Simulated assay, not measured.
Amino acid sequence: MDKGNKMNYTIKNNMLKVTISSKGAEIQSVKGVHSDYEYMWQADPAIWDRHAPVLFPIVGRLKNDQYTYQGKTYHLGQHGFARDCEFIVEKQSDESITFLLKDSEETRKVYPFKFELRVNYNLMNNLLEENFIVTNKTDGEMIFGIGGHPGFNLPVDDLQVKKEDFYFATQPSEARVKIPISKQTGLLDWANRSLASTDSLIGLSDDLFKNDALIYQLSGHDNKISVRTENSKFHINVWTRNAPFVGIWSQYPKTANYVCIEPWWGIADRSDADGKLEDKYGMNHLAKGETFNAGFSITFHSEK
């Protein structure tokens, strides 16, 4: 659903310069003003060809890449269509920008709801806020998932450190339910979820993602997931705010020096899903005319 020619827009303050594309309202670059360090993965097509896609109206994969709604079958690929759609800029200032996507005849072929999706970015010092505002324009209930998928560069070459020197730390320091995902199907292996030791550090390695993403259930309060190393002041923090799930992922078996920390308000189908959108686990239900607000924040810290 690539519509039109994409354009890049920039917001900037005295610490960060952020470039965002109209295609998918997707972050292309986050650079330190003083360090000139590129924090975002640069979409190497040989590894993973995206930077930080917006996932809507589903997160993850559907069983058989399809669902039924009110007796009709619709086909929809992994993570939905918004990441490939052309957004318009609704408003912009030096440190803030809001993108807008509305339903169209094309979107309604795969998702039979009328909607407005706004993706808003705000800069405050070294913090970048990404907000999702979904308004239901349908004459009835709207069902959807939404999420972020930012990929972060790990400065392995710059810092003379190895990828394995990095680790994930979570706050609050507590155990969380881990939901395994089938590498073959991309669906949740719901029966084998377990309590994971996220109250301790999680060492980063390529093999960490051999079974696909690490998916954790989150409680309602703020959760912070950090990627950092003891060998440098470099670290990135992601505050998931009210997200019920977070995914941690990097491509495997192809590998590179990046990692994604993904706050989600939605999740892939369970392997036992019946295919009905009305029954899909983890979805948001929005009444006619109502608006849904969610989002997350990222702080960037470099060596310089």
Rank of each mutant, 00 (worst) to 15 (best):
K72F: 05
K72L: 00
K72R: 14
T73F: 12
T73C: 09
T73Y: 10
T73V: 15
Y74A: 10
Y74T: 11
Y74N: 04
Y74P: 08
Y74E: 09
Y74M: 10
H75S: 13
H75D: 13
H75V: 10
H75L: 09
H75C: 10
L76F: 04
L76R: 05
G77Y: 06
G77P: 08
G77T: 05
G77A: 12
Q78M: 14
H79F: 10
H79Y: 08
H79C: 09
H79T: 03
H79S: 12
F81Q: 04
F81R: 09
A82Q: 03
A82E: 02
A82Y: 05
R83M: 14
D84F: 13
D84P: 00
E86V: 00
E86F: 00
E86Y: 03
E86N: 14
F87L: 10
F87Q: 04
F87P: 13
I88C: 11
I88Y: 09
V89H: 05
V89F: 07
E90I: 00
E90W: 02
E90P: 06
E90A: 10
E90R: 09
E90T: 03
E90Q: 14
K91G: 15
Q92G: 10
Q92A: 13
Q92L: 11
S93Q: 15
D94T: 12
D94P: 01
D94A: 11
D94H: 14
E95F: 06
E95H: 14
E95I: 12
E95N: 14
E95D: 08
S96R: 09
I97W: 01
I97Q: 04
T98M: 13
F99S: 04
F99Q: 03
F99Y: 15
L100T: 08
L101T: 07
L101S: 01
L101R: 08
D103N: 14
S104I: 12
S104M: 03
S104D: 02
S104C: 07
E105W: 07
E105D: 10
E106G: 01
E106N: 10
E106Y: 03
E106R: 06
E106C: 08
T107A: 00
T107E: 00
R108W: 02
R108P: 02
R108C: 10
K109W: 03
K109M: 07
V110H: 05
Y111S: 04
Y111G: 05
P112W: 03
P112Y: 09
F113C: 10
K114Q: 15
K114N: 15
K114R: 13
F115S: 00
F115R: 02
F115P: 02
F115G: 00
E116N: 14
E116K: 11
E116A: 13
E116T: 13
L117V: 05
L117R: 04
L117W: 04
R118V: 08
V119G: 03
V119P: 01
V119D: 00
Y121F: 15
Y121N: 00
Y121I: 01
N122R: 13
N122H: 12
L123W: 01
L123V: 06
L123T: 05
L123Y: 07
M124C: 06
M124Y: 09
M124G: 01
M124A: 11
M124F: 07
